[in-house]
C-alpha cells in the first residue's frame, strides 16, 4: 500500500520540482501488444473448460457425440479470443495533467476519468500468466464505491513501476482536502 501522505507545508515546498519531474506526457497510449497473448490464453483456458464439460455431458448421453465438446471448444474459443483481440484494440489510457483517463470495453464502452486528487493508493500486480508474458497490471484505488474498478493491464514491469511511481507523485502534488 502506497500511502499518499499529505503534510501541507512540505508539499508546498517541494511541489514545483515534483511537478516538473512528474510532468505527464499526454499521449493516448495503447497496451503492450503481448497482452493479447495473455488474454487469448485465458480465453482458451475458459473455452477448454467449457469444451470439456460439454464433451463430458455429451459422452455420458451417447459416446458417439464426443465431438460436441470439440465444437463447443472451437466455438467458444473463437468468440472469446475475438473478444480479447477487440479488447486490446479498444483499450487506451492517458496520463493527463490532473487526471488519469481510461477508454475500454468491447460490448460496453467505458471512458473513466480518475482525478489524481482522489487516488488513495496504487498497486501493481503480476499474475502467473502475466509473469510468463513479462507483463504487469496497475490497480488504482479511489474511495469511490467502484474504486477497485480502475485497473490498467498489459504493461511491462518497468512501465507499471514507472506509472505507479508517477501516479503516486501526481497524487501527492494534487494533494486535496481529505478524501472522505
Amino acid at each position: 500500500m502506497t500511502a499518499v501522505d499529505g503534510n501541507a507545508d512540505q508539499t508546498a515546498e517541494r511541489s514545483p520540482s515534483t511537478a516538473e519531474r512528474a510532468a505527464p506526457d499526454e499521449t493516448l497510449r495503447s497496451l503492450d501488444p503481448r497482452v493479447r497473448y495473455v488474454w487469448a490464453m485465458q480465453a482458451l483456458v475458459a473455452a477448454a473448460i467449457f469444451g470439456a464439460l460439454a464433451g463430458g455431458v455429451a459422452y455420458v448421453v451417447d459416446p458417439d457425440y464426443l465431438w460436441v465438446g470439440g465444437l463447443v471448444f472451437v466455438g467458444v474459443g473463437t468468440l472469446t479470443v475475438g473478444l480479447a483481440l477487440a479488447r486490446y484494440r479498444v483499450w487506451r489510457y492517458q496520463v493527463r495533467s490532473d487526471s488519469l483517463f481510461l477508454h475500454r470495453g468491447v460490448l460496453t464502452r467505458v471512458r473513466t476519468v480518475v482525478p489524481y486528487v482522489r487516488i488513495q493508493h496504487v498497486d501493481s500486480n503480476r499474475g502467473p500468466v502475466e509473469r510468463v508474458a513479462g507483463l504487469a497490471t496497475v490497480v488504482v484505488y479511489t474511495a469511490g464505491s467502484r474504486g477497485a474498478d480502475v485497473t490498467i493491464p498489459g504493461l511491462t514491469p518497468e512501465q507499471a513501476e514507472a506509472l505507479q511511481e508517477r501516479l503516486k507523485r501526481l497524487a501527492i502534488v494534487a494533494e486535496g482536502e481529505d478524501a472522505v
Binding site: 460496453t108 471512458r111 476519468v113 482522489r118 480502475v150
Partner: peptide
C-alpha cells in the same frame, strides 16, 4: 462537485 471521486461514461452496444 467536491465530493466526486471518478467520472465515467459508458455506452453499451444498444446505446451506441
Amino acid at each position: 462537485y467536491h465530493r466526486i471521486q471518478t467520472v465515467a461514461t459508458t455506452a453499451s452496444v444498444f446505446q451506441r
